[in-house]
Nucleic acid binder design. Structure first.
Lengths: 342, 342
DNA sequence: GCCGTTTGCGCAAACGATTGATCAGGCGTT
DNA sequence: AACGCCTGATCAATCGTTTGCGCAAACGGC
């Protein structure tokens, strides 16, 4: 395609089309205020195609002080929970002409080098960040300072935009499902007590109980965390109660996997002896045994919204806090829930 | 930290230290051939620290024609199989002073925009690519052309370096394990017939059978693919045989999950009625029911080696094809394998 | 046929960092 | 006293792109 081995630049196109570099730049960038004859435009486009021209990233970024790169930083890139979020972020980024840079937040200790590398060096225009669970919002806010367009996910921090999903409503739907099946004693395997999402989900769970006029035994609510082993621990705790719950709401799919494992380890059949429903959904939920009943959250839309919010900040807009309400959390009935044993 | 809201540049540091821009550049880049007094160096370093200087990425990239960014392109970033690979790539990239750009290969159809975006625009110095299963090597090679430092993983293509893991040996270890347990009729749930890794693994499996003097019934080898549903299909096929296998080697963890699901669906208990062992290992393998016996592959080292190979190409080295032999594939015994039912 | 306006395009100055070339002194040598 | 050399630091060109401004030619109205 190209004539030489070297990468074509603006001046190559200009030479081939017999016009100046600036003319080429204007044609190719589609500058509407540029006054260029259609004949010239056509010649330039043809020449650009012939030499396989692509604008040099560095030159452009230097001049425009903008890279069109957005970073998405999540605790663990390979966690299936982030699949949809990642797709949403990428789709919206591409729709806005940006490239997405995916990074793990492991190397993200306050003062860590990743932030400096990305923002300090001007590698990215902005960051969508999902803080690791247990991160102190104030500490993080201080570490970020004012220096960067930033949107956090799930956990608002001072001085930055944020986007959340309706955690309370989702947990409420999960609990309502169990109540509708006839369960009366329902355990809650929650996230860390310090986690905002965990608090919201617990609140939604309790709301549903209250609305149904059911007991709110504090022993039935645990705060172990979102990991598989946390789900295990929560379940062990709940099943050790003098009066066992007949169902458990897990605040997260990974924790739910732990709930299933622990139930099995204690010889309980799911859903016959214990119903399990998880907040969140992911492809892994269909591969567990039994497949998990879940409340699907709008994570794809969360990703898209986060990028939109980020773009807003980059364009000089004010900080804002959004919640993704559409589509609503919806229950995906699989095989881990059933009526309590007579 | 910084004095003003704006990002500090070289000239700011120079002004503060009372020296020229070039002096600052030389001090900060640690140029050994630079003749600068220790006093000046110290003043420059102090000034740089005070204003919180970070070299502007675009300016540097433009001048050096190098971005120190490496792209890792995998079929699906959220697949747990890529967790270790990703860590290996990132660790080695960081060790070499590079940033890793993680991307999905979905948008990677030949002629697709991602390649152009990354390489044509000079956003990355090179690419580590794991082609989607079923990709035609020649087509891909043609699409890439000579235009970029590229290292492929698992699947060599013409004109680019490649790194593989000992697939045959891993499959052999899996099959040997089953033979040692006493199995004589062993099914193989393989990848697509067109996939090089699948062929290598199947060959290793057959080698083990041959060495043990066991039958090599072609009906016991299937070629459905690496996905969960492929494992299901393979299993259905194998279990429909007049003489059922007592064990199945799954060519991949995801396929193995499908094997487990299908076995259960047909009322078979694992490992009592059917033993299952998977090539590859991933954290998900410990979360299935029962937890999967696996052959662990050196995927972390694969990632590191791939980046090393890429760096070699970028530095002008010759194309080369490596195999990661250390550490060797090793069997991780979990609960999905047992002696065949007497 | 003269003047003001529009059209079509090129010149040149940034953007920030790197680096070969250059320059001003101080010192030792002849 | 004139010379060359080494040290310490600056000058200026360069990477590829964008964009405000200037300049000619064409055009229209009187």
């Amino acid at each position: 395609m190209g004539d030489t081995g070297a990468v074509a630049k603006l001046s190559d196109v200009a030479a081939r089309a017999g016009v100046s570099v600036s003319a080429v730049s204007r044609v190719l960038s589609g500058d509407p205020s540029a006054r260029l004859s259609e004949a010239t435009r056509e010649r330039v486009r043809k020449a650009a195609g012939e030499v396989g021209y692509h604008p040099n990233f560095a030159g452009r970024a230097l001049k425009l002080a903008r890279t069109d790169v957005l970073a998405l930083i999540v605790p663990d890139v390979t966690n299936s929970l982030f699949a949809e979020l990642t797709r949403g972020v990428e789709d919206e980024a591409v729709a806005r002409g940006c490239v997405m840079l995916l990074a793990r937040s492991e190397d993200m200790q306050p003062g860590g080098s990743l932030f400096d590398r990305l923002l300090g060096e001007g590698r990215v225009d902005g960051i969508v960040l999902q803080p690791r669970d247990g991160t102190d919002p104030d500490e993080l806010a201080q570490s970020v300072g004012e220096r960067a367009p930033l949107v956090t996910i799930h956990q608002p921090i001072p001085g930055a935009s944020s986007v959340v999903v309706p955690d309370a409503l989702a947990a409420r739907r999960a609990t309502e499902h169990l109540i509708a099946l006839g369960h009366r004693r329902i355990g809650f395997a929650g996230g860390l007590a310090g986690s905002p999402t965990a608090r919201r989900r617990a609140a939604g769970h309790l709301d549903a109980l209250e609305e149904a006029g059911l007991e709110q035994d504090p022993h039935l609510v645990t705060w172990r965390g979102y990991r598989e082993q946390d789900g295990r621990a929560s379940t062990a705790e709940l099943l050790a109660l003098p009066e066992r719950p007949t169902a458990i709401v897990a605040a997260n799919v990974n924790a739910a996997v732990g709930v299933l494992a622990q139930a099995r380890a204690q010889g309980l059949a799911v859903p016959e002896d214990l119903s399990v429903v998880a907040v969140h959904d992911a492809w892994t939920a269909g591969h567990t045994w039994p497949p998990l009943t879940c409340v699907r959250m709008p994570l794809y839309e969360l990703g898209r919204t986060a990028v939109a919010a980020l773009a807003h900040v980059i364009d000089g807009g004010a900080i804002e806090h959004r919640s993704v309400e559409d589509p609503e959390p919806v229950l995906i009935r699989r095989e881990s829930t059933a009526e309590p044993r007579g």
